[in-house]
Amino acid sequence: MADPFTSALVRHVLGRLASEAIEEYGLLRGLKNDLSALENTFKLIQGVLHDAEMKQTKDKRVEEWLKTLKSASLEVENVLDEAKTVAMIKSLAGEMGNKYKRRAFFSYHMNPLMVRFRIAHKVKNMRKKLEVIDANRSRFQLTSNTTSEDSAGIASEISNRETSSLMPKICGRDEEKEKIVDEICNQEIGIGHDGDDVRVYAKWGMGGTGKTTLAQYVYNHEKVKTHFELEFWVYVSAVFDIRRIIKSICGLVDKQLDKMSTDYLLKQLKNKLKGKKYFIVMDDVWIENEHMEKWGELCKALSCGENGSTVGAPLWL
């Protein structure tokens, strides 16, 4: 199979465009329609990426289309990074006082009017570029792996890429596999979070390096199954949805979820895990600053487990 990097990149960009944290990038607030259009176009393209990546080895036109998409996705990432950086500098400038603000106003790179115009121009250009890329996909008769209804929301991507605890055949890396199992079952191994008694065993790396496969091996290992009282496999994705994570662990259905506040759900999670030694694999976790507050809230509920309870997390860098 072809390198899935483009799919992972598109998924990451979608996660950032869908994130509430984007509202903190003040320069983007007036570009809601353009950003929404960008997000929707990415979702439409995302539906055919699997087919495109399978066909690119036989069709050079598809390969070039994917390269163009990859380049455009990186440009969108750069624009979001620039907006985020400017927002941070603006915040620091506020703390440094009026003298710095006056200097910034007369700077081409930091003048708020010039910066807003520059970023708005880039976003609008990216919207046009993505629309052209989306229009070109019809030339290759690519098959979508989502329904038209699914493409309206990011939930379709979560569903299509969601992993399970079922273990494929895994060859090699025996020493690494056994070492991880031993460490998971070792009461003294683990890293807490902000003082909470939550052991986290993290496996870092880019996509395609076998993090999920190793997690599946550990999750299904007989030593792990006899060591822990409860086991849960949770698919997280680039969108850190704390309610969906609780739903996966507590076995709730969507109708129940709609009627409950996040605070009530966290209490339900705490009651389920309290006094039990559990092992939870949170697969496909993305390292984003905006996730840390939600992770902290989740840890408060997870910290109620019996000593030795562990969260395993294959992490995207």
Rank of each mutant, 00 (worst) to 15 (best):
R11W: 06
K276W: 02
G97S: 07
V62Q: 04
Q216R: 06
G97F: 11
L69N: 07
D59K: 12
R102D: 05
K225C: 11
Q268E: 14
E39F: 15
E297C: 12
D3G: 01
C185R: 06
N40W: 06
F117T: 12
G205A: 00
M126F: 03
I154Q: 00
L265F: 01
Y25T: 09
L38A: 08
S165V: 02
N271W: 04
K122S: 03
T213G: 03
N33V: 15
T143L: 15
V236N: 00
Q141M: 08
S138I: 15
V218T: 12
C171W: 14
V285S: 05
D134V: 14
E290I: 08
V10S: 01
K259A: 13
A72E: 07
K122V: 06
M292H: 15
R161Q: 14
K60P: 10
G192N: 13
R116K: 15
R118M: 12
L214K: 02
T68C: 09
K101C: 03
K255T: 14
K169T: 11
L265Y: 00
V236E: 01
K270Y: 00
E290F: 13
V10T: 00
N125M: 09
K276M: 07
I189Q: 11
R61H: 12
D194N: 09
V181P: 00
M206P: 00
G210A: 05
L49N: 00
A313F: 03
E77M: 11
Q216K: 09
V79R: 05
H193G: 01
F140H: 03
N145G: 10
